[in-house]
């Protein structure tokens, strides 16, 4: 019996597109997308209201660049972390815990195509969230400084997006590691919001070592680019009686920062994919 005429061979690239399309549709209609959007709009709304009412000097007295630095520069990384954790944190673990993998995986499609498709869908949903926040900040900036959008803000947005791509890879790796959705989301948030920051601080302040191995250290370029001049790569600040003690702080240069983000993107994407390929549907 031959049934060859009833269907055509589908390439893996096309499979990636199919997985991305339907996963994005699922994300876009899900409650979490609108919860995330609401969180971003609340942050943007609070910033708008507080700046409008109190006119803090850090926002309105430093020119357009200072405004974007205080608003976008301070909150973009948080938006990136929340988006990556929300959309990537359980992308793979959810296939196991929610049993949706039983519908998708036993089909003529490679796991790698599912992984990349889901990754692209989560990135697309997160990019919308990041763009909405950027637009809200841009609208505020144009209100206070009409017609003045610093090029550094555009660069900062681009760096924030690269950070999002790297953070998404990290979240997917965690998602592939754990079978529980809540644990993988929680681990992603804790790691991206707290653990890396602690590593950065301990490494530079206590050990005096440049934290080149930290994702958030690399992501420092998102806010640093909004400072003119760009912060020095290494700053030694004396303190205490007679300047007896010193505090060393490090800032990644733009090429260093991009390299760190790129390394995280590649290493975590490969690690996550290997974990997903090896993971078994045993429940």
């Amino acid at each position: 019996m031959s049934r060859e005429g009833s269907k055509a061979a589908v390439g893996s690239l096309a499979h990636v597109g199919i997985a991305a399309k339907y996963n994005f549709l699922n994300y876009f209609r899900a409650r979490r997308f609108y919860v995330m959007l609401a969180i971003i709009l609340i942050i943007a709304g609070l910033l708008t209201a507080l700046v409008g009412y109190y006119r803090p000097p850090g926002f309105v007295d430093g020119g357009a660049l200072g405004f974007y630095g205080a608003g976008w520069g301070s909150f973009a990384s948080i938006v990136v972390v929340l988006s990556a954790a929300f959309f990537g944190g359980d992308a793979i673990s959810g296939e196991f815990q929610n049993r949706t993998g039983y519908f998708l995986v036993p089909n003529p499609i490679r796991r790698s195509a599912i992984y990349v498709g889901k990754w692209l869908a989560a990135l697309a949903a997160s990019t919308i969230i990041l763009a909405v926040f950027a637009l809200a900040m841009l609208a505020n900036g144009l209100f206070y400084f009409p017609g003045n959008v610093p090029w550094e803000f555009v660069e900062s947005f681009a760096f924030a997006w690269v950070y999002l791509v790297a953070a998404m890879s990290l979240a997917f790796a965690f998602s592939s590691l754990f079978k529980s959705s809540s644990i993988s989301v929680l681990m992603s948030v804790i790691l991206l919001l707290f653990v890396f920051s602690v590593i950065d601080t301990v490494s530079s302040l206590v050990a005096g070592i440049e934290p080149w191995f930290s994702l958030t250290y690399g992501a420092g370029i998102v806010s640093n680019i909004l400072n003119v001049p760009y912060p020095a790569a290494k700053t030694v600040t004396p303190f205490g009686p007679g300047g007896r003690f010193t505090v060393v702080s490090y800032n990644a240069t733009v090429p260093e920062g991009l390299l760190i983000l790129l390394v995280y993107l590649v290493v975590m994407a490969v690690l996550g994919l290997i974990l997903f390929e090896r993971k078994e549907f045993t429940s």
């Binding site: 899900a30 049993r99 039983y102 519908f103």
Partner: peptide, 13 residues
Amino acid sequence: ATLIETPEIYPSL
């Protein structure tokens, strides 16, 4: 074509 155990479908689809 396969049906293994009782699969779940993406809830928003």
